[in-house]
């Protein structure tokens, strides 16, 4: 029993030292990235040894920068509506609330021109300052909110899973077809939420016609059953409705 406590203490102390150090080293890494375009992401400032962070049974990793990972885990640039465990895990570990790294530790960015990954060819888009500020804000929500974005994060779904290939814009929305790739087909969804007593009180079969999923299901804000705006007495619940 004593041994376990001791181990735990050691772990906690090491962990907090690491955490305290992270900010600075992250900033340094970002600075290094800024000064030289195409520079490599120096994972080593934090991860002296990748063995500590890779899953059990993972083959040994050589190298000290991001390409050590991306050489096998090639970033998905197709924007499929699918899980992306690697990208999700990397982002979850490095953005708030778990981590606190600046995007530019791993990413390259020339405002309004390009946005990519260090050591990897290609650009995901051309975000400007506001776009990046928004992505940062939304990433934080994705990483730790009580909203639908975090529910997706926990299921290894990142931005591209819903928004597709291009980086999301400030007025981006998600088309129903995208949601239905995983949550469909529509008939199945309708059946699932069909009330036993009154079939017409089905949130997935509105009298308002073919409405967008996002009318009720909000990714980066509180979801809300739209029906209840007027039909105040209906008993309907939705996931991700709580404020963080």
């Amino acid at each position: 029993m004593k041994k376990i406590w001791l181990l735990l203490m050691v772990f906690l102390v090491t962990f907090s030292v690491l955490c305290l150090g992270i900010d600075n080293r992250g900033a340094e890494a970002a600075k290094a990235a800024d000064s030289g375009k195409g520079a490599k992401a120096t994972c080593q400032t934090c991860h002296a040894d990748f063995a500590a962070v890779i899953p059990k049974g993972h083959p040994a990793v050589k190298g000290s920068d991001l390409t050590a990972c991306t050489s096998c885990h090639a970033p998905d640039q197709t924007g499929k509506a699918a899980k992306n465990a690697f990208s999700s895990r990397m982002h979850l570990a490095h953005v708030a609330p778990k981590g606190n790294q600046d995007c530019l530790v791993c990413h390259t960015w020339t405002s309004g021109k390009s946005f990519g990954l260090k050591g990897v060819k290609g650009s995901f888009g051309a975000p400007n300052k506001e776009d990046v500020a928004m992505m940062k804000e939304i990433f934080a929500s994705w990483g730790g909110s009580k909203f639908m974005d975090n529910l997706h994060a926990k299921g290894n779904i990142g931005c591209a899973g819903c928004h597709g290939k291009d980086l999301p814009k400030a007025d981006d929305t998600v088309e129903n077809n995208r949601c239905l790739t995983c949550h469909g087909p529509m008939d199945k969804l309708v059946k699932k939420t069909e009330p036993k007593d009154f079939k017409d009180r089905n949130p997935h079969k509105s009298h308002l016609g073919d409405i967008a999923c996002t009318v009720c299901h909000k990714a980066h804000g509180a979801s809300k059953v739209y029906c209840l705006d007027c039909h105040k007495k209906f008993d309907m619940k939705i996931q991700g409705e709580k404020a963080p």
Partner: peptide
């Protein structure tokens, strides 16, 4: 609004 039709559709 996130749906079309205003008062007209209802």
């Amino acid at each position: 609004m996130p749906t079309y039709g205003g008062n007209s559709i209802i």
